[in-house]
Computed example of a mutant assay.
Amino acid sequence: MLGPASLAYLHVGDFRPAGLDTVDVVPGEPTDLARLLASVTADDADECGLADITSRAFVVRWGNQVVAAAGYRRWPGLVAHLCVLTAPNHRGRGLARAVASVAAADGVANHLLPQWRARPEPSRRVARALGFRQLGAQMSIRIGT
């Protein structure tokens, strides 16, 4: 069983971009994502969904190391399902808000509806800070193996 998770969506009129005045967010490369994903627990890597994005990745670098990344997976119905990850030792600095801001803006520019799925409360707080509104919940159950 996976969940429950909140499902939040972003209306363009509610969007509150954040963190871009203090952090440079740049396009990332697949190797950047692989290194960041390898630096976190398997649970964090699975929860963020970053390995499955179909958009470009947007990253924050600390020196030559990627410490935060976001992108989205295009889902049916013109949905941009956001995926965000910050390295554990860099959390609480607004980096998730910064990379998610750019990813959400990219989704909107591509005429998609940004969606945020989250179980952990810190992730839900980031979504709310950007203007996402919780409109539903999700529970996934695997039957058999």
Rank of each mutant, 00 (worst) to 15 (best):
R16A: 13
R73N: 08
T86M: 00
L36Y: 02
G13H: 10
A45W: 08
R117Q: 15
S101V: 03
R93G: 04
V59P: 01
A8G: 06
S140A: 11
A87C: 08
N64C: 04
V26A: 04
T41I: 06
V99R: 06
G3A: 06
E121M: 06
T54R: 07
A68E: 02
V25M: 07
R128K: 11
D24T: 13
L2E: 12
A45C: 12
G63V: 06
R97T: 13
D106T: 09
A42P: 05
V102I: 09
N89W: 13
V84Y: 09
A34M: 00
N64R: 14
L130I: 12
P88D: 12
Y72K: 07
W116V: 10
Y9F: 14
V12G: 00
G71D: 03
T22R: 15
V102S: 05
V23H: 13
G63T: 03
V79K: 13
G77W: 10
S39F: 04
M139Q: 14
V79W: 00
Q134Y: 02
G13N: 14
E47N: 14
A109Y: 03
D44V: 06
R91S: 09
D24F: 07
V67G: 01
R142A: 10
R128Q: 14
R117I: 12
S39L: 09
R124N: 02
D21L: 12
L85D: 03
A70V: 03
R35F: 00
T31C: 05
W116D: 06
H90W: 15
P27S: 06
L2Q: 09
R61N: 02
L20I: 03
A38I: 00
L78I: 11
T54N: 06
A109F: 10
R133I: 10
P4A: 07
